[in-house]
Design a protein around this nucleic acid. Structure first.
Lengths: 209, 209, 209, 209
DNA sequence: TCATAATCGAGACGGTACGTCTTGTCTTTTA
DNA sequence: TAAAAGACAAGACGTACCGTCTCGATTATGA
């Protein structure tokens, strides 16, 4: 009754728990230095002080590895209370822009999105690990705004979900396009303009910041 | 009186003009069949009935080639007069979404954007060949709306340019995110919702469709 | 009680021992069919049922590979006892001529000698693997002749080494030139004439055959 | 009536006569710098200040070009009268060795011999341009020795031709082997030893030097 | 304490694409 | 007609990664 094996007591040498984190960190480091296209898994393994076998035992390939490495970056996003819906949105968008400005995110994120156009499992992994995971921010922001009375409570839950999706597509899309394609900084000025248009479009009335 | 023969009279055998088109077409075909990551330049050359050297003489690599191959797709975009600003926008966005739904665009576009995060020349090429080139649609749409009296004439040209950029980032970004990341169709319903938010955000008043 | 495992216990998957022989055999086969200048290492690898990387892991290039492939041919040389020094020499020269008449030897040997004029390491490899290795025949022949009383025992070891070298240059050189440049067969008649001149030149007296 | 075209007044622009010499010189220069295997015809043409077309109009390929470039070197060989057959032979052998020591000869000669093992026309070209052309030295040496009374006049012309061939194979073969394979200098000492053996072998008696 | 089993490092392996180079031909303009 | 210039098809080069495999060594569980 005193089985104290962490992984359910299955036989054999247990996996080195530290290796996962080391590999993901090495992946991000390599993304910074080399970018997606020159990132080689053999090199990542070496950087992580791990054999290639070990890496392949845990991830099926470059795409999956990079999704996981990048996904961790977005978990840093927070929704601090800045007093108004507009200010809250601006705050999150600025954080999002800051993450996207980091080379390990830039280089990896778009690449796996590109790959996901031909790989359904990969797209699902991206959605689960990154997109859906961060919709929490939209939901939390809306809830807070409703508490403040800035937004009415939802009535139609289906319509509500559609709106969340639309907002997410608009926010994420605009910031990504601004940052990666237009290659202009998504700085405070731009974020203020963007937020004004978004909020006016959604509510039909100018919101105080 | 200055003779300006197209080939400039420069010595040596002139380049085969048909090869460029054949190579770009072969590139798009290969993108459809194989996707970006399995696209091999040797294979593209074979499909185009051309030697690998000929391809490399004209493009410096996969990235540049795919930018040019994809850029041609967006030249199909038109701004037909549908009677109102909202309808015009919806029309263009639908066309844009239709192009982005094609596998040769999907697979190639995001990949070169990803690469461009580490290659300034490539990003410039994307901007020149695709982004700036298609801003004509925003400009034409606004001009037409001004003629109709739906929009006031601009006063500050700098502010005006900033707004065009913002619109472009929001439109292109949202459609790309909807199509590639959320992997939901940018169909008429979605486009109508999106256009409503955008236009309301920009003008502060609901526009008739 | 010293354990000397063949693989020395070094880590990693051990090399496939059979591959070496397969590659060298494939090299000779390709030399016969294609000759030196059309011999392609990728093709050799394919013939040997081996990846190109495997070949390059073991040989640094075409030159080194062909030296080894050809060197094995000369290990067939034997010095059978034909009763007299003259007959022994004739026997070995005929064998040597027979090997040189084979296309895999012809085509490869001169080519690597040509390359070795600009590559000291290659020349050393040729000397070690082929030339010095076969001087055993000269030494054995002389020893046997001394036992028979046909030749006096050496006195000056340095002078003796110089003579062995001279004999080797004369024998190998003449047969090669006859076979490859004059392109006439080094048949029994020619070998008899050559041996007569050589032996008379070395000993000052006609030897019985 | 004043047609002074060198080649019989055939129509069109006449060939540039200087180009042949320039190309052969450029070939030798490239052989010195790069060696046979890295010698590229495009590069030779550039060095000669000539278009590749011009080169190919005059030579069918690398092999033929190099044969001609190397053949010219051997035309420098002379048979100065040094007073005795042995001294004459030594003199010629030393000259031959000196030519073979030059990189453009070393690198090119063996390579074309190697190629000739699979190309009858090339072998014939080598025999005609180099080998047979230099047998004049053997013939002249023998004639002079006969005048001096060192050698008897020939009786059987067929036997005589066979002997000339044998001598040539032995001399050329030994020097080539000494120089290229053994990679030892064919210096005066070696040449003296070699000549002694050769002459004793041919005449049965030691010759005064 | 010994068998079993999974992991680890190391590195060989078959395969595929890379981007460059050379070959020998072809096509243009200029002489 | 030749010459210079350079584009062209073809194909080998040697390198780099991929993802798999085969080793010996290690580290856990369970008999």
């Amino acid at each position: 009754m005193h089985s104290h094996t962490p992984s359910g007591g299955r036989p054999g040498r247990p996996r080195n728990a530290a290796a996962d984190a080391a590999i993901l960190a090495a992946t991000r480091q390599a993304l910074v230095e080399l970018g997606w296209s020159k990132l080689a898994l053999g090199d990542v393994a070496t950087r992580a002080g791990v054999a290639k076998t070990t890496l392949y035992r845990r991830w099926s390939g470059k795409n999956e590895l990079v999704v996981d490495a990048v996904a961790e970056l977005f978990d840093e996003l927070r929704l601090p209370d800045r007093g108004s819906l507009a200010a809250d949105i601006e705050g999150v968008v600025l954080q999002f822009a800051a993450i996207l400005a980091r080379p390990e995110a830039k280089s990896g994120l778009m690449a796996v999105v590109a790959e996901s156009t031909r790989d359904d499992a990969l797209r699902e992994r991206i959605r689960t690990s990154i997109v859906e995971r961060q919709k929490r921010l939209v939901l939390a922001g809306r809830a807070r705004a409703q508490v403040r009375g800035e937004l009415p409570p939802e009535t139609d839950p289906e319509e509500s979900a559609r709106t969340v999706d639309l907002i997410f597509d608009m926010v994420a899309g605009a910031v990504v396009h601004r940052t990666l394609v237009s290659a202009e900084p998504a700085d405070e000025e731009w974020v203020r303009s963007f937020t004004r248009v978004l909020l006016l479009g959604l509510t039909g009335s100018q919101q105080p910041v």
